[in-house]
Design a protein around this nucleic acid. Structure first.
Lengths: 285, 285
DNA sequence: GGTCAAGCGTAAGCTCAGCTTATGCTCGAC
DNA sequence: GTCGAGCATAAGCTGAGCTTACGCTTGACC
């Protein structure tokens, strides 16, 4: 394997012209430089330099190797710079909370981007319902969280929590043209206590009825499978409705769900939080 | 500076999973690999691996460095391959003959390309008139030569010399619409004994007159400068007529000059000759 | 032509990086 | 509980690569 230290000397020779000048530049003796270049020549198997007068000049093969040496050394520089960035950049554990759909749909790509950009970070993900996020953030159990808001559920405003909106998505209803048309159907909803559950109940109340809830299921894929099996109707966000099972028709409703990222107030400029928010923005996904 | 030997070990660790496997692959002891990777970690200033169970796994920073290591090692491989190509490729002196215009207009770029592709070659150029090329090639004073043929001068066919046509170019006449119109002018021609001189004489004879030759000059730029100074008319090839001096108008004639590359018969497959012909073809220029 | 400094190469010696061997620790399988 | 796989550390040895010393060649200057 070619030794980059020797390649560096060759490149410096190409720049400076004499072995003595190279030696001075790297604070070696000219003898050391001469020996190193001789060794490089031996390894290369081709003459790289030749005496001309009392200095040396590069042969064409020498110039060729200088070109390659240049790219090798640049690449090594880049590697060192990347390590320096890791040393200086955000590092350590980063506790991320997210609602289940986001965990499945958003986080894989986001985490890949996050650790690629900041290898020192150790993201740790916990599924958590938006209703519980504020407490977890305040308690320091989470550093940053993905939450959502629904039209029918006023957002909890907590002075110690800051949010940044990420995107908005429409809601879909299974097999019925509107919520009002599902008055007499069985409903499949998320577990009580979750924001999605509250949203679905309120949506029905706004349509003038109390829904009959038969199933309590948190996973939207399972909910859609139940709907396909004729077990009832359900409200699902677009994020969970990208590939509905056959037999389920989805109707877009004039309801929307907004996804936000939440963190403790004042931590928006914390490097790790900044990095996490950056990879979660729609433009990064 | 990062040591590529250590980077190689890191990359192998990413591939093979255990230090023991890496050690076997590079025929070291596991201890040596462990020490090297520890040293790399120290130089990097970031944890690169961590014990998990009884094996080690790469940290995100470790994976990042593996990516860079990969490109560094590939680049070093390329450099080695280039040197191997130089060792195996054509090398040594290559004596090239060329007529003066070609020396000026064609060879600089061609030689650059030639030594870039085959740094082992040492091209040595001699200006030589096409009329003398056959003898020089046969005598071994040249290995390859650029020559030209004119419409009025039948090409010398020599059984021991092989040629390959490169390109054809039109001839231009200064300040007169045709050769016949220059019957009464003074002429500026190349030195007697050159092919260009013979060509010009024959062209005049074909137009029905013997030219009155006032100047004998070999360099076409000088010839054009003389023409601009009103010293006479001249025939010049396009290669020499790319930027005529002000005051000279050039008329394209139905005469052409063909440039060929010549070498000893049977040497067309010689690596150095092949390489030289390749960079002289119009597609390479 | 003689002298001298600049520049390079080689020989000899020394230092330290990096290998091996030896040993101990931890983890996971049986 | 036992045992082997896997890794880390300590100790010792070898060789790569540095310095110092010296000689040769070249080109400038007198």
């Amino acid at each position: 394997m070619l030794d980059p230290r020797k390649l560096l000397l060759l490149r410096e020779l190409a720049r400076r012209g004499t072995i003595a000048a190279v030696a001075e530049a790297v604070t070696f003796t000219p003898s050391a430089v001469s020996q190193q270049l001789s060794a490089l020549e031996r390894e290369a198997g081709v003459p790289l330099l030749e005496r001309t007068g009392r200095t040396v000049t590069l042969t064409p093969a020498g110039h060729l190797l200088v070109e390659h040496a240049q790219t090798v050394l640049e690449q090594l520089e880049r590697a060192s710079a990347a390590l320096a960035a890791v040393r200086g950049g955000p590092s350590g554990p980063l506790r991320i909370g997210a609602f289940p759909t986001a965990t499945r749909a958003l986080l894989p790509a986001a985490l890949t981007a996050l650790t690629a950009a900041h290898p020192g970070l150790e993201p740790m993900v916990s599924e958590i319902d938006p209703a519980d996020v504020s407490a977890a953030l305040r308690a320091g159990e989470l550093d940053v969280a993905l939450v959502h808001e629904y039209d029918f559920v006023p957002p909890v405003t907590d002075a110690s929590i800051e949010t940044e909106p990420l995107f908005s998505e429409p809601m879909y209803l299974t097999d019925r043209p509107s919520v009002a048309d599902a008055r007499d159907d069985s409903w499949i909803m998320n577990k009580p206590g979750t924001l999605c559950h509250t949203m679905a109940i309120r949506a029905c109340q706004a349509a003038g009825f109390e829904p009959r809830v038969r199933h309590h299921i948190d996973d939207f894929d399972t909910i859609l499978a139940f709907a396909a099996a004729g077990q009832g109707v359900a409200l699902v966000p677009r994020l969970a409705a990208s590939s509905p099972p056959p037999g389920v028709t989805l109707t877009r409703l004039p309801l929307s769900r907004r996804t936000l990222v939440a963190f403790r107030r004042g931590y928006g400029e914390h490097p790790a939080i900044r990095a996490a928010v950056a990879v979660l923005r729609p433009s990064a996904l």
